[in-house]
Design a protein around this nucleic acid. Structure first.
Lengths: 340, 340
DNA sequence: AAAACTATAACAATCGTTTGCACTAATATT
DNA sequence: AATATTAGTGCAAACGATTGTTATAGTTTT
């Protein structure tokens, strides 16, 4: 029943016109060595038949797929869905398509996805690591296949890789300086999992700012969370029960801050009086909240996405593997929500 | 410098072993007509060389890509990022890969994406329409290429298409009955753009519930928004300035409800006393809000995604184009956030 | 010992397109 | 008029893998 007609090919056109396939191919590409008459005839028939080149055949011939893969933890996080929009926009501008895979922060899943994408012969990969990932072999081995990789945001602690990362030191300094300017002296931090580079960077920034402002560094003010609400609540609870409680807390992201805020309220603390929160990420719903963090560090995910994509495209267009590695650092900005 | 070694192919193995490529191919596939000795030799060398079949060549030969495309408005909406997770999970289970394209609610963009995916020879498509889309030709023409399409959530008003849609009538009835049970008699609606089927369905449900409960239908209680905050505020403002104000409002989604709630507060109305909100979608941040809608209709986006993907895979495995169309309706549930 | 069979492997076509090279005929050059 | 040039086309290989058909042994059957 269904119109199982095969799609028209260059061969058919050739046969119908009684010329060779190579002539047809060249005619369709406006090759100078083809006569005007033939060109016209070919192009017209192609249009009539609704001919469209078989991309798969072309990919096969060229050994390219014009596809790039993006591997990231979870699209549900707004940060990543914005980042992938950036990737997609640049990709489309350059005639590339985007494959997507979510690792859900699972290293095994991440490996599987990378392997599948390699099989699918993506021309390049953009990756934000799962927070579990400790081994990077599955990425490094892509070199053998000539598949360039650009990491963003959650980048590996390796030299000689291409990466776009957020300037966590600078961002954290901005947050801390802002709080210090507001008079805070005891500032707590709810940091991320230790494997993540950014976790160390926050500590580094913390130390630098404290030294610069001649505030004694107290490491008991630094707690970590695995980003789950339970873990966050444990962390904030510790901070709020210190003999000398912090008057402000920098939280690794808005959700962590919100969990912290909720818990602080439960402990009957007055927001922005007893305790003040600043966080990273800047999710849009803060505008609907009664008690948002007073400021967040915007990390420009869309820009991270476009930047990574641009680098990848440059790498894919390179002939051999030049040994230059891109290492772009994106600066954040502190967005102030409230001046209370 | 770079290890520009070509990947090993079946040909190389054949040459090194002084046998034909067909023998190698069959040996690798455990074909019975190949002797044990040869099989072993081939398989061992393949392993040594780290041979992996060139998927593109295979796709080309088979005319299949094992890729499915997903076209949806925007990943930033949690509804869609959850839905695509559903698609991805089912796809992976069935060895399919997922391409992604965001229309950003632009019909032209949607057309472009579909065309690009067709060029890329996806084996099938899963689509949630842009809210602008009025013409469906770009989808219908895919039939010619034997690319099946399954729509979900935002489905076209056409017979003879495959679709997974939300039972908006039922969901809306639940919301309305809930409000009526709480004693509300004048219930407003902030509906969506008129092109969307769901918009009509909400009205239909509204009428049915009102008739059933012997409440006079007042169409001035039904306003529409294009989902922008400005448009929403206009709509809610109209409702709240009616001579006989509604005591409750059903809003098309949580964000619209939040915009409405904010505006109501600005007008000094007391939430859940002067005015009560119910919405659709059930975003997770409601738990952080001081004044969330008291209930939302959960639409199970992940399930919509998996369902659509399963149908698509079934369709792709079908030989010719059977003329059976799937039309699955997903029922929602009212999730109550607050009993105030 | 001739015929028939079996196991194993090679041959060759195929998928759709691109591209280096060879070829023909017509035109231009001397 | 003989030679060189050029415009326009065709031939064939190539990309990597699969698969129907055929060929070559060696083995069994009668």
């Amino acid at each position: 029943m269904a119109d199982e007609k095969k799609l028209p090919t260059i061969k058919e056109i050739a046969k119908k016109l009684n010329i060779s396939v190579s002539t047809v191919s060249r005619a369709l590409h406006d090759h100078p060595s083809i006569g005007l008459r033939t060109k016209m005839r070919v192009q017209q028939l192609a249009k009539e038949l609704n001919y469209e080149p078989n991309q798969i055949a072309i990919f096969f011939k060229q050994g390219k797929t014009y596809a790039i893969g993006v591997v990231l933890p979870s699209l549900i996080e707004e940060f990543f869905s914005k980042a992938i929009s950036g990737v997609e926009d640049i990709a489309r501008q350059n005639k590339y398509h985007v494959f997507i895979g979510q690792s859900h922060d699972d290293e095994e899943m991440e490996k599987e996805i990378v392997s599948a994408m390699k099989d699918q012969h993506v021309d390049g990969l953009i990756v934000s690591l799962s927070k579990q990932t400790k081994n990077y072999d599955h990425f490094l081995s892509l070199k053998k296949y000539n598949i360039p990789v650009v990491f963003f945001d959650r980048v590996p602690a390796l030299p000689n890789v291409n990466k776009v990362s957020f300037n966590m030191i600078n961002g954290t300094k901005q947050a801390l300086e802002f709080l210090i300017e507001k008079g805070h002296r005891r500032i707590g931090v709810i940091n991320g999992p230790e494997e993540m580079i950014s976790t160390k960077e926050r500590i580094e920034a913390y130390k630098q700012v404290m030294i610069k402002n001649r505030i004694k560094i107290d490491m008991s003010l630094i707690e970590t969370t695995d980003l789950s609400t339970a873990s966050t609540v444990t962390a904030i609870d510790k901070l709020l029960h210190l003999k000398r409680r912090p008057t402000a807390v920098v939280a690794i992201n808005d959700y962590v801050a919100l969990d912290g805020i909720r818990h602080a309220k439960k402990l009957k603390l007055k927001l922005n009086k007893d305790i003040t929160f600043v966080s990273y990420a800047n999710i849009p719903i803060t505008s609907y909240l009664q008690d948002p963090p007073i400021a967040s560090v915007e990390q420009y995910p869309y820009k991270q996405g476009t930047t990574a994509a641009k680098i990848l495209i440059e790498l894919m267009n390179l002939q051999g593997g030049e040994n230059i590695f891109h290492d772009v650092v994106i600066d954040g900005d502190l967005v102030i929500h409230s001046h209370k």
